[in-house]
């Protein structure tokens, strides 16, 4: 009988059983995990497009309304000289989602093929996207804050249609990485 680590509480259990400590199922479900992850990933990729082409923020000054997309927001911050913040946003909103897509696709293919090469690096990549993933939401919360603070008669900031798509995209990638079970990486390799 093989020993497995419980996905919820980390206790050691025999496979095909309920965890003695937290009573959740401990078995690896390769097919279910992969298909859920792929489904969330495809949905996230679809929302990625409107998230980037529609403005996430609109500034209404008198009769004039100006929208700005995520990339435009970064460029604006860069031009106003706030280089560190521009880099943080560039990293959180542009690089992390792309990195997440690439790593998730790579891990899904590796698990589906049962690849045994560089298992430790793959686990490290998985933890990298687990930790950095939620930070893409910075841009969404910035919209929440600016919309709440700046709503005067002469000037107001309102959310743009891209904001919902962006939030959904981040949420779906979070769900994708959470449904991918990291214990599947390098499963059946030298055990």
């Amino acid at each position: 009988m093989r020993l497995v680590r419980c996905p919820l509480c980390g206790a050691t259990n025999y496979e095909h059983s309920r965890c003695y400590r937290c009573s959740s199922w401990v078995d690896l479900d390769k097919k279910g995990s992969l298909s859920k992850a792929i489904a969330f990933l495809i949905a996230a990729l679809i929302f990625y497009i409107p998230a980037n082409i529609y403005p996430i923020l609109k500034t209404a000054q008198f009769a004039d309304t100006k929208g700005s997309t995520i990339i435009e927001g970064v460029i604006e911050l860069w031009h106003s000289g706030d280089y560190p913040v521009a880099l943080i946003i560039l990293f959180a909103s542009v690089m992390i989602p792309i990195l997440k897509f690439l790593i998730l696709i790579y891990l899904i293919i590796a698990i589906a093929k049962g690849s045994c090469k560089g298992v430790e690096q793959k686990v490290r990549l998985y933890h990298l996207i687990e930790v950095t993933g939620p930070w893409s939401l910075i841009d969404v919360f910035v919209v929440v804050i600016l919309v709440a603070l700046i709503h005067f008669h002469s000037v107001a900031i309102v959310p743009g249609p891209g904001a919902t798509s962006f939030a959904l995209m981040v949420l779906l990638t979070l769900l994708a990485s959470k449904s991918l079970d990291p214990r599947l990486i390098g499963e059946d390799c030298g055990k």
Partner: peptide
């Protein structure tokens, strides 16, 4: 901002987005 002032509480910020029609966020 030049005489216009505003302050924000957490639940106010969330409610404001709801009013704008961004129910999901």
């Amino acid at each position: 901002i030049g005489g216009l002032d505003a302050s924000m509480r957490l639940y106010e910020a969330i409610y404001r987005l709801f009013e704008e029609g961004y129910v999901l966020i």
